[in-house]
Amino acid sequence: MARMLKFNIFRYNPQDPASVPHMQSFSIDETESMTLFIVLNRLREEQDPSLQFDFCCRAGICGACAMVINGRPGLACHTKTKDLPEEITLMPLPIFKLVGDLSVDTGTWFRAMYKKIESWCHTKKVFDPNAIEERMDNDVAEAIYELDRCVECGCCVAACGTALMREDFLGATTLNRVARFILDPRDERTEKEYFDLIGTDEGIFGCMGLLACQDVCPKYLPLQDVLGKLRKKMAFAAVNNILPSFLKQDIKL
């Protein structure tokens, strides 16, 4: 028997003077292979055309549709109703600025992040269009890609206790991005330069290591591993210059 699902959805349109934040309930019949993408579009087409939410690839690839689903941040397009109870509560991601209902502004947050950590390969070399490409070990390429898979959905930030307490905390996605560049031989930044970016309480030392981030990451990024190694690497970076040479350590990511 098909279930009747009950959705409690956060509603607020900041651009409508008559709107106040509240929860609204909707009922909808469950169908085969139903995802929250199908549900929300049907609700907008059939019940309330003012409902705001974000979808783009609807294939779990672009990271646009993160929201809090029964208390847990996740990608809506990726969530099958058959894995959920009959009553489902949907809230927008915290931390990011609300656009309306379930839609938030992640773009501004992430672009600020790129600037903060200078999210690009730093090199003094100049591209030579006539030369063949510089060689790279395939294992290195795969290790970089492993971390490059982050889709900037914001789930890890929304789930993070530190990020909720301090607005300037970089978040797991940002630290992971820095780790990606540390791995990349094309980025010529020194340990000291990386330390200046993240060796602070807004950075790796603010992280409490409770790993809610890894728990919710829809791309299964190895955040536990990345954060652990970064913490160690940065701790040594802080003291390496005062340690005698036989105690110095270079932590490989």
């Binding site: 690009w120 390969c121 070399k125 591209f127 269009p129 030369a131 063949i132 490409e133 510089e134 060689r135 790279m136 070990d137 395939n138 290195v140 390429a141 795969e142 970089i144 890609y145 490059d148 990349d184 094309r186 980025d187």
Partner: peptide, 18 residues
């Protein structure tokens, strides 16, 4: 080919020949 190499220069982790 030039465009591909330029993307490698800027940081794309292309799979490489083993």
């Amino acid at each position: 080919p030039i465009a591909m190499r330029q993307m490698a220069f800027w940081g794309v982790p292309w799979n490489r020949v083993v």
